[in-house]
């Protein structure tokens, strides 16, 4: 599973950098973006396998960002990062093609299982 390309989108820079480093230590190839615009730029250049997308990012709404990613490449799998109160956004995200969601604070083992499953789904759908 080495070198699965992961894009982490979260405006909390310290959260993003710590989580990115933890994933890198687990052999994922990780890039991070702090807002929707930056994320879409990296999606084009980096071509991630999996995007970890915080639903409450500044700029474009998280769901709109999800739609834009899927429109660019429907095989990119998106895992939503969310707080407990975002049930409606999660449902909306799943309807719009998100692969999974994970609650913050993140359990790293649970997250890597979900990333690996998303990567496997992407290989099948290619």
């Amino acid at each position: 599973m080495a070198h699965t390309k992961v894009l982490l989108v979260d405006d909390e820079k310290e959260f993003a950098s710590a989580l990115a480093e933890r994933l890198q230590l687990r052999n994922y190839d990780v890039q991070a973006a702090a807002n929707a615009l930056e994320a879409l730029g990296i999606v084009h250049s980096f071509r991630p396998d999996v995007v970890l997308l915080d639903l409450r990012i500044p700029g474009m709404d998280g769901i709109e960002t999800l739609k834009a990613i899927k429109k660019f490449d429907s095989t990119i799998e998106v895992i939503m990062l969310t707080g407990h109160g975002d049930v409606q956004s999660v449902e909306n995200g799943m309807k719009n093609g998100a692969f999974e969601y994970i609650m913050k604070p993140v359990d790293i083992s649970e997250l890597t299982v979900k990333i690996n499953k998303a990567w496997q789904k992407k290989q099948v759908s290619r």
Binding site: L19, K104, V106
Partner: peptide, 23 residues
């Protein structure tokens, strides 16, 4: 709602930071 969201973010950062030290 705003308060709990903010606190959850702080806890998430603390969680990742302690996790990173362990890693």
């Amino acid at each position: 709602a705003g308060f709990t969201h903010e606190i959850k973010n702080y806890i998430a950062i603390i969680n990742e930071s302690t996790g990173l030290i362990g890693d």
